[in-house]
Nucleic acid binder design. Structure first.
Lengths: 103, 103
DNA sequence: TAAACACATGAACAATAGTTCATATGAATG
DNA sequence: CATTCATATGAACTATTGTTCATGTGTTTA
């Protein structure tokens, strides 16, 4: 199906600030690496830290930001807290960015 | 058409840093506002500054970043330098972000 | 070609953000 | 229930970033 022509009208000025806030979450390499790690499988905080070779604290701080903005979700499983991507939008945004880079 | 299952394998670690760099450009409200202003029509630096009620210098600095990353293109037209969006990817990324916000 | 106009750029400053370190919370286990 | 394991959180420090101010570059026009 053909995409409809892109509209730009009706975008409230306020929304643009929220949009910047959203992209800000994708603007740090640690957070990007976390998100990519979560594409394949859900992971605990410690596992993510090990995968990225970073401290548990640093990862936990970033996960908090990602969760606040609903880019990841979490559930407790025993002592561990398991994180996963919140929805498909996250992956879509990442992939769009990748396409731009690879051109 | 159904989308194919999302792949995550084959993403080089290095690319993730470039990806973060890309999103960093979308992470500032001034730059987002500039990009949105350029959706409808091409504009000179002064026009953008007026539209956003910001100094010419501030706008010019941000345009330089946007141009370096090929998110906008520019051409000289007399004394003015006219800026426009570089390609469709820019708009696609912005729209994807908007969709996430509006849910 | 001197002046005016449009934009670019460099240095400096203030604000923001990411990591570290220390410590707190919460759940399982002996 | 004290200890251990897994994660969360607050404060402090450093680095990065966006804006301002002053000035430089390039183009048109009188």
């Amino acid at each position: 199906m053909m995409a409809a022509p892109k509209k730009s009208q009706g975008v409230r000025e306020e929304s643009l600030y929220d949009l910047a806030e959203l992209f800000k979450l994708f603007s740090d390499s640690t957070r990007i690496r976390i998100l990519y790690a979560l594409i394949d499988r859900e992971l605990g905080v410690g596992e993510i830290a090990a995968a990225l070779t970073m401290t548990q604290s640093a990862i936990s701080h970033q996960l908090r930001l990602l969760k606040q903005s609903k880019l990841v979700r979490s559930r407790r499983e025993g002592k561990a807290v398991i994180y996963g991507l919140a929805d498909g939008h996250v992956l879509t945004i990442l992939n769009q960015g990748m396409e731009h880079i690879e051109e």
